[in-house]
Nucleic acid binder design. Structure first.
Length: 830
RNA sequence: GCGAGAGUGGCGGAACUGGCAGACGCGCUGGACUUAGGAUCCAGUGGAGCAAUCCGUAGGGGUUCGACUCCCCUCUCUCGCACCA
């Protein structure tokens, strides 16, 4: 603790954040101040921050995230809303299991110990959560509903099992999520990841692709950037499927194209190496392997001629069939027609393998007569007018797309289709620390869902963690052995667990119901959910812009369609806060540039920590860490503390001026400044939560207040009015010191329960304004005039000013521009 | 490569709808108090100049009485997507 006052000089009690903060945290808890219940008579506000993974300790990113959320929650509470502000734990996940493998601690023990510690840390930050609604996703009470939703989705055909290629780490013997593959290697053991075909459970998010896309338009409270990312991820494109026959056979190759208007320009066909026909058509298995090895790599295009030809349905032309590394199996049909003149990738491929390039689209009438055989430098990918396209020549691209698609449909050789980039969501993980997928495999009955009354399928505790040989569940006989719910015969449980993104896709729904009260049934709408949903303000990192937010939007719709809620969208407003940066890089253990929140809170207290992280940058921007900046925030709170302490007796004695009484000139000025500050802080919070400028306004007020010596009663009453309002404004930001000083000037507890202050527009209005006078746009003078003067008079005053008159001299005045209450610009000639 | 966003003092950042560029904080300079000051308080602080003044919002052009703000071009940085046919 830095020495701020030497004992001899200061008689007042020193600001000791530790004592103050502990005191008020206890009081809040005892009084249950932040506990919430549904109350139809009051307007609700659901404020939510992304819950943390209990990794051990919170980091500065959490402090920032939760400080932002807490200001919003406290502000809305003071405004009279019934605020739901919950917190919980995203408690399943690989780190717990890795800790078990490495240190022999059970994931459960590790997780719950971390939760206990981190909960203590959040408590010390003074965050206004309703802990009665805490959720912990690794608790059976929670994950049983993952299982219930899964079964409901199976019933609706929204959960299904199929074989698919996955990222597989042979060393860890598990599937890796895409984001766990770093530069084609396993993030944990650095082993090369391979593509492996596995039976996987999928959730059919694609069934909602269209709705998820079209309702992006409704996400007006989200950052545009995030909405764009959602749209791109869903990736809708209009096009056509076209069937090419393989020459000399009856076999078909179905391709997808967004440019049916270029069909006459197709000079070859490409199959993905993973396409079922690839292996069938190619005799040279070594060559195929080579192409496969380069699959999905951006560096170069590699192809292999199959020796077969396809017949173009529109002109019966025979074109060669290639296998190409750049054709993705996961998108479209896994096969494309290649139009090198109008697709740059096809163009590069054609150049490399000496394949013909035929132009079928021209940009304008004048360039139709392109010299046949002349080298194209690159593909023309835009639209235009068709040439060399048989009966369709002369049509515009957009018209040709329609007509060619219609022609294909008529001949039974194709149709218009819509494709999405969005894939179904593979949720199977060969991991222990997750929700068991509630499915039983019976030799007689096949795949059987666990029946609802048998939920939850509990994750067994007594398992061994070796880190090799796959999921520990494979070794747990008591877990594996089960009787079939249908026939009663011997059966085996599914050992895969769910992706942890499932847990976080509906936790905001669980909060509405409250701890020990999470129950769903599709029988009728749930009144608690109807009251609270959707979340009014969601706050979190932009790194979840696609996955978590998209999955949550999907789940919310599934829950809606189960008849549980009416809400389609989970989050009305989204605030994505920036990263915490130090020395030019994101704070991270590996960079060694972390600041420990524990250290910060011990040294300066939570109010200072919160204040700094809110003051240093607007929430959506990155925050550059500064030790000196923290000192500045601490100094600010100390100044307030000292100021109130010094006048404590006077403040206690004075009744509030009620914002009306006239006092000394300085007193009136302070009164005005106070009203202006209330206005400014309120408007800055309302305007995209710009807390940094709100805090700056409070600093200005404090600067004015510290220069104010209230000798007379009237002035002291003004001063008290300023102090009270300052504390009220400060309350959402630095609640502990606000509470303490509020009490010390003789108010009852608690300031947190006071209404947000209102300003009086008349009191805030300036009676005098500074008039800026420009000549030809250059600043030439400033003077004070009374506010609201008519333009004529302002003009006169400006022209009469001696300096201005001198500057004008004999020159002619061409024009005078007057901006009310701001400036006069005099345009003069030579 | 494509898409989005950003570039303002020594630093973090302000600036309504086109109207005083640099609020507020940090740092720095000077002073007060002091045995001392890395505490606190007061004053100053974009650059150049004794000054009047001039120059300044990545760079260049434009629109305008007036541009950090609008338009065009160039450069740099950050983020997202990266062969989606």
């Amino acid at each position: 603790m830095p020495e701020l006052f030497s004992g001899d000089l200061m008689v007042e009690e020193r600001y000791d954040p530790k004592t103050v903060e502990q005191k008020w945290q206890n009081i809040w808890e005892e009084k249950g101040l932040f506990r919430t219940g549904a109350d139809a008579a009051r307007e609700k506000f659901y404020c939510l921050e992304m819950f943390p993974y209990p990794s051990g300790k919170i980091h500065m990113g959490h402090v920032r995230n939760y400080a932002i959320g807490d200001v919003i929650a406290r502000y809305k509470r003071m405004q009279g809303y019934n605020v739901l502000h919950p917190m919980g734990w995203d408690a399943f996940g690989m780190p717990a299991e890795n800790a078990a493998i490495k240190h022999g601690v059970h994931p459960s023990k590790w997780t719950y110990e971390n939760i206990r510690y981190m909960k203590g840390q959040l408590g010390k930050l003074g965050l206004s959560y309703d802990w009665d609604r805490e959720v912990t996703t690794c608790s059976p009470d929670y994950y049983r509903w993952n299982q219930w939703f899964f079964i409901k989705m199976m019933e609706k055909g929204l959960a299904y099992r199929r074989s698919s290629y996955v990222n597989w780490c042979p060393s860890c013997a598990t599937v890796l999520a895409n984001e766990q593959v770093i530069d084609t290697r396993c993030w944990r053991c650095d082993h090369a990841v391979v593509q492996k075909e596995l039976e996987q459970w999928f959730l059919k998010i694609t069934a909602y692709a269209e709705e998820l896309l079209s309702s992006c338009d409704d996400l007006t409270g989200w950052p545009e950037k995030v909405v764009v990312m959602q749209r791109n991820w869903i990736g809708k494109s209009h096009g056509a499927e076209v069937d090419f026959t393989i020459n000399g056979t009856d076999d078909m190759i179905r391709i997808f194209t967004t440019r049916p208007d270029t069909l006459f320009g197709a000079t070859f066909l490409c199959l993905s190496p993973g396409h079922p026909l690839s292996a069938a058509l190619v005799a040279d298995s070594e060559g195929l392997e080579k192409v496969t090895a380069h699959y999905g790599k951006v560096d170069e295009k590699i192809g292999l001629f199959t020796g077969s030809y396809a017949v173009n349905p529109v002109n019966q032309e025979k074109i060669p069939i290639y296998i190409a590394n750049f054709v993705l199996m996961e998108y479209g049909t896994g096969a494309i027609m290649s139009v090198p003149a109008h697709d740059q990738r096809d163009f590069e491929f054609a150049k490399k393998y000496g394949l013909p390039v035929r132009e079928v689209i021209t940009q304008s009438e004048s360039s139709v007569s392109h010299v046949p055989g002349a080298e194209l430098a690159e593909a023309y990918e835009g639209e235009g007018v068709l040439v060399n396209s048989g009966p369709f020549s002369g049509l515009a691209s957009s018209e040709a797309k329609q007509q060619i698609s219609a022609w294909l449909a008529e001949k039974g050789r194709g149709k218009k289709v819509i494709n999405y980039k969005l894939r179904d969501w593979g949720i199977s993980r060969q991991r222990y620390w997750g929700t068991p997928i509630p499915v039983i495999y019976c030799d007689a009955c096949g795949i059987v869902p666990v029946s609802e009354q048998d939920l939850p399928v509990i994750l067994p505790e007594d398992v061994k963690f070796t880190g090799t040989g796959g999921s520990p569940l494979l070794e747990s006989e008591s877990f594996l052995q089960v009787s079939c719910p249908k026939c009663g015969g011997r059966a085996r449980r599914e050992t895969d667990t769910m992706d942890t993104f499932v847990d976080s896709s509906w936790y905001f729904v669980a909060y509405c119901l409250g701890k020990d009260n999470i129950t769903f049934s599709g029988k009728s709408l749930n009144p608690e959910l109807s009251y609270w949903m959707p979340v009014d303000q969601y706050v979190g990192g932009v790194e979840h812009a696609v996955l978590h937010l998209l999955y949550s939007r999907f789940f919310t719709r599934v829950i809606r369609d189960l008849g549980i809620t009416c809400a389609s969208e989970p989050f009305t407003n989204l605030l994505t806060q920036g990263m915490v940066i130090k020395d030019g890089a994101k704070m991270s253990k590996s960079k060694g540039n972390v600041v420990d929140p524990d250290y910060l809170i011990n040294r300066y207290g939570s109010d200072t920590s919160r204040l700094f992280s809110l003051f240093a940058a607007p929430p959506e921007k990155d925050l550059e860490w500064s030790d000196k900046g923290v000192e500045g925030a601490y100094r600010f709170l100390n100044r307030i503390w000292a100021m109130v302490q010094r006048h404590q007796n006077g403040l206690r004695a004075a009744a509030s001026a009620g914002g009306k009484t006239s006092a000394s000139d300085k007193g009136r000025a302070l009164l005005k400044k106070t009203h202006q500050t209330i206005r400014k802080v309120t408007m800055d919070i309302e305007k995209e939560y710009h807390f940094n400028t709100a805090i700056a306004a409070m600093m200005e007020l404090v600067n004015d207040m510290s220069g104010f010596e209230p000798f007379e009663d009237q002035d002291m009453r003004v001063f008290r009015f300023s102090v009270e309002n300052l504390l009220l404004l400060l309350c959402p930001f630095t609640p502990h010191i606000a509470e303490e000083l509020w009490e010390r000037i003789g108010n009852g507890p608690s300031i947190s329960q006071q209404p947000w202050p209102a300003w009086d527009e008349n009191m805030a209005a300036d009676e005098e304004v500074e008039l800026v006078i420009q000549i030809n746009g250059k600043l030439r003078g400033k003077l004070m005039i009374s506010a609201g003067l008519p333009d004529e008079q302002v003009r006169e005053i400006a022209l009469k000013d001696s300096k201005i008159a001198e500057a004008i001299g004999q020159k002619s005045i061409r024009k005078v521009i007057i901006i009310k209450g701001r400036l006069v610009n005099i345009v003069i000639g030579e």
